[in-house]
Write a protein that binds this DNA or RNA. Structure first.
Lengths: 194, 194
DNA sequence: CGCCTGATCTTGTCATTGACAAGATCGGGC
DNA sequence: GCCCGATCTTGTCAATGACAAGATCAGGCG
């Protein structure tokens, strides 16, 4: 009677499949619509299987958010190594938000996951370094100014990305987010001499 | 046996009491932890009472978000009338986020409420006008530049506010958010001549 | 070759929640 | 004095998150 068994008892890489399914649900219905049972259904396993890998719902979302911060850090690192320009790191931030909407939408909703999780904190700090560090170098030599510039830069690109994803920016910005982000970001650091 | 009846059958101003209770829950446990039944318990009514006033959970949160955008618009208007300076409108934006954390935390989670609700859209646009309008005037006369400047300004103060509330900014910024916001915002519009 | 130990996944259950239906209570107009 | 609609309650159902207990499998070790 086991002739039509399609899937084995052991999934093989269920953990990854669950992460993928979670991303899918977030992309379709938003981070707050994620349910462990729906995720389990999409992965083709029983309703309690996700709990084994992630403990609880917050654990699942913590894993997705951590993955997101890691991917973001890699994107920012890539932009820095390719261009060396701080402006382009900001543009890469926005590009990440657009091409990884689901991850990004979850990453800044700390009430949905465990914001104090050590791995998550480490991944977040790794990403933050690419925004704080270069900003300090790119601005004057005064003590507090570097940090202020970093805050301003991160605030601008982060605000731009979140407003964009929530549909709060004009159609032109939605059509070509990268160009709009570059124009907006160029208002910092005196690059707007036109 | 009705001698100890404490509360009347009709609450008097249940709608407002429910909004207050919702704000309370958001402040304590975040927007995603709001439950109609908990809100009803805090208001001292039955579990189905909120549905009568707001239809469903999304309706309740839509009402709270609308109230938030209205309050925000009033704050921005106040800043504009008092100071006339665009920078101070941005600072008022951050001040609103800090002193109305619960409202602000919900306002930019459109997956929790009905983002296409007419009253909400109107309230949001009213607030947005104070950020787009003056920015256009404060920057050059060229066509697109005003809008770009508005986007940059709104992005910066919005990003600053959200990063601040999520605990992603350095301790110094958390201790005196208004001053930090003013320093960050002054990086726009050429005010950073130090 | 056979066992057996732990990791993986399932089934079953319970309290909580959101939504709906039906009924009770109240207030104000006629 | 009555009635009608607004307000609020009680009762119910499916879905969910969390937990407990059991089934299945893989790989090491005799």
């Amino acid at each position: 009677m086991a002739s039509e068994r399609v899937r084995p008892y052991h999934h093989g890489d269920l953990r990854r499949a669950l992460l993928r399914a979670t991303i899918e649900v977030i992309a379709e219905r938003g981070p707050s619509a994620v349910s462990m049972r729906e995720v389990a259904r999409r992965a083709g396993v029983s309703h309690a299987a996700p709990a084994h890998h992630f403990g609880d719902k917050a654990g699942l979302l913590t894993a997705v958010a951590t993955e997101g911060f890691t991917l973001l850090a890699e994107s920012l690192r890539g932009a820095q190594e390719r261009t060396g320009e701080f402006l382009e790191i900001g543009v890469a931030y926005v590009r990440f938000a657009v091409s990884n909407r689901a991850h990004f939408a979850l990453m800044f909703r700390p009430d949905l996951y465990r914001a104090d999780d050590p791995q998550l904190v480490a991944a977040k700090q790794a990403a933050a370094r690419f925004l704080y560090g270069p900003a300090a170098a790119a601005s004057g030599r005064r003590a507090g100014r570097g940090r202020d510039a970093g805050i301003a830069a991160w605030s601008l690109v982060h605000g731009f990305a979140t407003l964009l994803l929530d549909g709060n920016l004009p159609p032109a910005a939605r059509r070509d987010p990268e160009a709009a982000a570059r124009r907006a970001a160029s208002h910092l650091f005196g690059a707007h001499r036109g």
